[in-house]
Amino acid sequence: MTSDLIVFILLALIAVASALGMAFSQNTVYAALYLVLNFIVVAVFYLLLGAPFIAMAQITVYAGAIMVLFVFVIMLLGVQSLPPAKTLPWQKPLAVVLAILLAVESTYLLLSRAPLTQALAAPDASANTTSNLQQMALALFSEYLLPFEITSILLLVAMVGAIVLSKHEKKAGSGNGLG
């Protein structure tokens, strides 16, 4: 048992626990906070895997911006919990069985097809240098320029879409609900 492994197991436990907490908590605000915790743990994993930029992006975009949006909507709608389900009674057991099957199958497949037993050493200090970041930026803006631009268009479309959806035009007497 090396220290690496101990750290990993601890972090993994926190991640799984926070994920479960998110998935099963009755209070929506708690769920959001569990998810934030989970994101932070994953960001630590990114650091351990030598991806500091992604780790930072994870914290700022996901744990920061997106989750703020979530909480904002939760607050806006004011619904923290729902009454017990009366529909789809067989959904929950079936979902659990299928989820377990999925986990087993995907794990088995990943491990059996490619037995990745290679040890992942903790990154050295070079991973955190600016040259590393520069190289990544170079790849992003040369090799992956087109996907990058398309993504920016996608973001623009999503922004417009969100605005159109949220915008409320009150037309007197139209009454067809399409406004």
Binding site: F8, A23, A95, T107
Partner: peptide, 23 residues
């Protein structure tokens, strides 16, 4: 030593929990 396997298994577990939550 932490191998890739561990991350993969963790990823699968997290994915499954997410799927369960959706369902």
């Amino acid at each position: 030593m932490v191998s890739v396997n561990y991350y993969i298994i963790l990823s699968a577990i997290l994915f499954t929990i997410g799927a369960l939550g959706v369902l």
